[in-house]
Amino acid sequence: MSESATGYTKPLPVLEGFSKDFYAFCKQGELRFQRCKSCGAWRHMPREMCAECGSWEWEWAKSSGRGEVFTWTVVNRALHPAFRDSVPLAPVIVELEEGVRLLSEVQGCTPEELKIGMPVEVVFDEVTPEISLPKFRRCVR
């Protein structure tokens, strides 16, 4: 199905390379990151090799999906036409329990309520039939 057929007009990830796998897991409701099979280091963004130990061996390991807000902003003026009707929007960086960080947003939370350190857990927003974006909601620690 084309983008326009779904009515969703914002930029979407392109499902190729590592992103194809990352978002395929999201579509199944799982947040997974690469984890080195040699030294155990988690990583995001996806990479060919482990920058910690040089190993090429890795797996898509399941994250708990829980973490906290590391930093945030509130965009009041969109600098991309697809978001013109979506402001204010609040991109956040979430630090997951595994230590990796993901750029995302917190649903059900006004910009005024955002706080660094706020505990959050992952939810999946099925924005098109092909793509579910990982987002977050507040939770108790």
Binding site: K10, P11, S19, V75, L79, H80, F83
Partner: peptide
């Protein structure tokens, strides 16, 4: 940036 920033509206330097 295309696959992990843009979908969330993080599109430009001030952001």
């Amino acid at each position: 940036a295309r696959d992990y920033y843009l979908p969330y509206g993080l599109t430009a330097p001030p952001q």
